[in-house]
Simulated scan of single mutants.
Amino acid sequence: MNTTDALEAFALTWTGDLTYDVAPSLSCHEVDTLATLLRALGYTAAADAWITKHSRNDDEGDAHYVTPAAALREQLADASDRTPWVELREEEPDAFAAGHMVLHAGGRNRFAITEQCDRPSDDPDRT
């Protein structure tokens, strides 16, 4: 097997379900190194998935840390991207105001999530 074939085989192995099982246990440096290699091989979406899955277990101050609200938004966006008939909306003016994330499946079929905050929207320390 030549180098090109070996790299392709590596990329195909590391772009599947393995991401969900392994990414949370890698260090930031390890996942960055893997993502860099996958991007160089043209697997940008897979590289982004490794960073995303890894970031869910990062602690505040770690390189890939995201707030719980941002992680939820990302997970809903991922579900929406994988399901063509579902659209993620930040709000739906007729039924749900700002502060809601709505998975819309056409017609009146939708699932809304209400954002719960500890402070008013103009407070920069709001979580």
Rank of each mutant, 00 (worst) to 15 (best):
L37H: 02
P24Q: 12
V86C: 10
E115D: 00
A47L: 06
P93T: 11
L88F: 07
P93Q: 11
I113G: 00
T127G: 00
E74R: 07
E60P: 01
V102Q: 07
L18F: 09
S80T: 13
L76R: 03
A105I: 08
D5M: 02
E115Y: 03
R39E: 12
G99R: 06
G61H: 14
L34Q: 04
S55I: 09
D5K: 00
H64M: 05
E8W: 11
F111K: 05
V31P: 02
S25K: 13
T83P: 01
E60D: 15
A79Y: 12
R56A: 13
S121H: 13
S27D: 01
A95R: 14
R82T: 05
D32H: 13
H54G: 02
P124Y: 07
R82Y: 01
M101I: 08
D123A: 00
T33R: 08
H64W: 15
D58K: 06
N57F: 14
D58S: 11
D94A: 05
A97E: 10
M1P: 03
L37S: 03
A46F: 09
T3P: 01
A23T: 08
S25Q: 12
L37I: 14
G16P: 04
A9V: 12
A70M: 10
I113E: 00
H100C: 02
R89Y: 06
D21G: 05
D78M: 02
D59W: 10
P68W: 13
L37Q: 07
T67I: 11
D118I: 05
C117V: 15
L34F: 03
T127Y: 02
D122L: 06
D59Q: 15
W14Q: 06
D21Y: 10
V66F: 08
D81R: 14
Y65P: 01
R110M: 13
S25E: 12
H64V: 12
T44H: 09
T114K: 13
P120K: 10
L26Q: 12
T19C: 13
P120L: 10
T44Q: 08
P93H: 09
K53H: 15
L18Y: 07
F96P: 01
G107D: 11
D122P: 02
T114R: 11
L76S: 02
N57I: 10
A46S: 14
L76I: 05
D123I: 05
Y43W: 14
A35K: 03
N57S: 15
V86W: 15
E60H: 12
E87I: 11
N2F: 04
G42T: 09
H64S: 03
L18Q: 14
P84F: 13
T3S: 08
P84Q: 14
H104C: 03
V22D: 05
W50E: 05
T36K: 04
P124G: 00
